[in-house]
């Protein structure tokens, strides 16, 4: 069974976000980039499947991205971190991820010839929070798509999944190959062990040129949200004041 895990390279949530003077670019200096947290769930699930059947499962990790200038902004090192979970090989498509359409086309062009049974994605990237890439890849490759998956079990050429829906869960059956995007619950996060980290250093990491695709959406600029003024302090002994404030705003 061949599994593809697509991961994006995003600023750590705890870092302060700043932009270039014209607002078009993220200021990457001093920013630590991590594997998108939702993608950690799919890496962990792929590692579980691989563990159960080491010779029968082959896992490729893929990222569309360019290595940045600093050691904390390096796609290759994030790919190696993923490999350290016991996965087989990594692919980096050497291009800046301009928009969801561009990225999805890169991934689809690569995956088309590979015969993957499972194409794993996170539910969204925490940088642009677009929720675009997995569904676009599924449409481009015309594969069944299960979004917000919280579990997947595979039996032969069929999978049973659960998916988050408003107010509950849905069970879904799908033939392979399929595309899924993961939500928390798909697997427990894993931390690579020392042996995994050592082995990852020599695993194959292929750097491929992008295919030509014209992006469809462009970022004009970024703004920081207006700074919140100081909050209104409510005296716990005059709690009615809060009730009145909320009522004035039509919230109660």
């Amino acid at each position: 069974m061949k599994i593809l895990c697509c991961i994006s390279h995003v600023p750590d949530t705890t870092t302060r976000i700043q932009f270039s003077a014209d607002g078009t670019q993220l200021d990457r200096t001093g920013v630590t980039f991590i594997v998108n947290p939702y993608d950690d769930f799919v890496l962990a699930r792929a590692a579980e499947l691989k563990e159960k059947n080491p010779s029968g499962v082959h896992v490729t990790v893929l990222c569309v991205g360019k290595n940045g200038a600093s050691s904390t902004d390096n796609v290759d090192s994030n790919l190696r971190k993923a490999l350290a979970l016991g996965l087989d090989e990594a692919v980096r498509i050497d291009a800046l991820p301009v928009d969801g359409y561009f990225v999805a086309n890169q991934i689809a062009a690569y995956a088309e010839k590979q015969g993957f049974d499972l194409l794993f994605f996170g539910k969204e990237s925490i940088d642009y929070n677009g929720s675009q890439v997995p569904g676009m890849v599924a449409a481009l490759l015309n594969l069944p798509y299960i979004s917000y998956a919280t579990s997947i079990e595979i039996a032969g050429q069929k999978a049973v999944l659960t998916r988050e829906i408003t107010g509950g869960k849905e069970r879904i059956e799908s033939p392979l190959p399929l595309v899924l995007s993961a939500q928390k619950g798909l697997a427990e996060w894993r931390i690579p062990n020392v042996r995994g980290i050592m082995q990852a250093k020599t695993k194959p990491l292929h750097v491929l040129p992008p295919v030509e695709v014209t992006p469809r959406v462009q970022t004009l600029r970024h703004e920081l949200p207006p700074a919140k003024g100081p909050f209104k302090k409510i005296d716990p002994d005059k709690i009615e004041e809060l009730v009145q404030e909320l009522a004035n705003k039509g919230l109660i």
């Binding site: 359409y101 999805a104 677009g130 675009q132 890439v133 997995p134 569904g135 599924a138 449409a139 959406v217």
Partner: peptide
Amino acid sequence: SQTYNGRAMAPMLSVWADGALLSG
């Protein structure tokens, strides 16, 4: 709308309609 189902459907729709997608 950007509900669970809207998010699932919109990217596929944008590809099959050969369109552009602005999400969220």
